[in-house]
Amino acid sequence: MNILVCITHVPDTTSRISFTDNNTKFDTSGVQFIIGPYDDYALARAVELKEANGGEVTVLNVGPADTEPTIRKALAIGADKAIRVNAEPVDSFYVAQQIAAVIKNGNYDLILMGRESIDFNGGMVHGMVGELLNLPAFSPVMKLEIEGDTAKMSREIEGGKEFIEAKLPFIAGCQEPIAEWKIPNMRGIMSARKKPLEVIEPTDSVKNTEVSSYELPPAKGDVKMISKDNVEELVKLLKEEAKVL
């Protein structure tokens, strides 16, 4: 079974978000970049499926050269080879077209990615890739079992989950608890250096959106503390001061 896992290279979830150049650029100073947490679940499940069924896991990132340490980490976790499309991932449709082009040129039984990137949170790329290739796409997938050419999944919906059956190939946007995150071991880290990482140039694709500037939300005011012996006061404040009840 050949699995393609698409990963994003994003700021750590604990990063302080700020901007430079008159609020037109994300300030990367002091920011640690990681594999997107949802993509990490997709990768972990892909490695498990490979271990159970054989085959190969290819990891794909659309990004400039500075994403390569993140790609190497995915190789250390257990992917066999990697492809980097040498382009800035600025627009979801642009990225979807790049991924679709890689899938067309490959022979994948299953395409996994995270439910969304944690920088732009669009959660749209899997669906766009599905439509571009006329394949089904499901997200957010919390459970994925494969038997032969059929997959059984559960997908989170508001207030619960739905169960889905689909034939391979398809695209899935993953989230917990589909698998446990894997931490690379020493052997993985050593072997990752030797695994192939192919760099390809982007296909000619359109961009439909572009960020002109960023802003931060207004700072939060001070917290008003209320005595534990006077909870009635809290309800009164919520009614009369905050006007939310």
């Binding site: 979801s92 449709f93 979807a96 732009f120 949170n121 669009g122 959660g123 749209m124 790329v125 899997h126 669906g127 766009m128 599905g130 439509e131 571009l132 796409a137 499901f138 997200s139 957010p140 997908r155 989170e156 919906i157 508001e158 439909n208 959106t209």
Partner: peptide, 24 residues
């Protein structure tokens, strides 16, 4: 509206209708 149904439908519509998709 964004939801477990709205999001994937929006993604597919963007391709079908050649439309810019603005999320969130």
């Amino acid at each position: 509206a964004k939801s477990s149904l709205g999001d994937p439908v929006a993604a597919r519509l963007a391709v079908k209708l050649d439309a810019a998709l603005i999320a969130n």
